[in-house]
Structures are given as C-alpha cells and as structure tokens.
C-alpha cells in the first residue's frame, strides 16, 4: 500500500529537517492530510508507527490533521466545502468547481531538541 511509501518519505524528511536544526530527538510531528489527497489517514498512522522505529522519531507523538476540501466555483467565485472531486456550487449550481484545498500531504511542523 502506498501509505507505507508516504510514511517512509515522511520519516526521511523529518530526520533531515531535525538534523538541519541540530536536533537528535524528535518529540512530536504534525502532519496534514487532505481528505481528497488519496491517502487514508488511518493507514498512514499505522504505517508511520511502523516506519518510525529505530529513527530519530521512534518516541515521537504523531498529530494528524485532517484537512477538508475547499472548492471555488469558476462561475460565481463562491468558496465552499467539498468532499469529492465532482462538486456542484451550492450558490449557482455550476459544475465548474476548482479544488483549492484538500489534496494536501504536508509535514507542518515538528518539536525536537
């Protein structure tokens, strides 16, 4: 499953950033997963828990922030929550909706020393 690939990428990224800041132990990691990112948050948590063993994050707490989707209507510029790629504007009922948030997959921050 690809969540394991993502988890391994995350561990590498966190270790790189921690080392850049001169830190050797990571206490917590904040990750943002958009609900339209194609990543299953539970599977990602599971994968991170496995992947972080024997790393600088082995004892770190992982905070996973689920980011809701946002769409902007190309017809009337209305911004509204979306939970699917195919959405209809609640104002003008147009199908021309552009996704402006919700496919994030980000390392937001970490706490380390």
């Amino acid at each position: 499953m690809h969540e394991l690939s993502i988890a391994l990428n995350l561990i590498e990224l966190v270790e790189e950033e921690a080392r850049k800041a001169g830190c050797l132990k990571v206490f917590s990691v904040d990750v943002a997963v958009g609900l339209l990112s194609g990543i299953d948050p539970e599977a990602l948590i599971f994968s991170i828990t496995l992947a972080k063993e024997n790393s600088l994050l082995s004892d770190a707490v992982i905070h996973l922030h689920r980011i809701e989707g946002s769409g902007r209507c190309r017809s009337c510029n209305n911004i509204f929550p979306v939970n699917a790629f195919h959405s209809t504007c609640p104002e003008c009922k147009s199908n021309a909706v552009e996704l402006i948030a919700g496919d994030d997959l980000k390392l937001i921050s970490l706490e380390a020393e």
Binding site: V31, L105, K106
Partner: peptide, 12 residues
C-alpha cells in the same frame, strides 16, 4: 512534549 517547535509546511 518538549524541545523547540520547527514550522516547516513541506510537501511529504
């Protein structure tokens, strides 16, 4: 939870 907070906002 201790140590300093490092804000990154990086794509995984």
């Amino acid at each position: 939870e201790s140590g300093r907070k490092i804000i990154l906002q990086k794509d995984i």
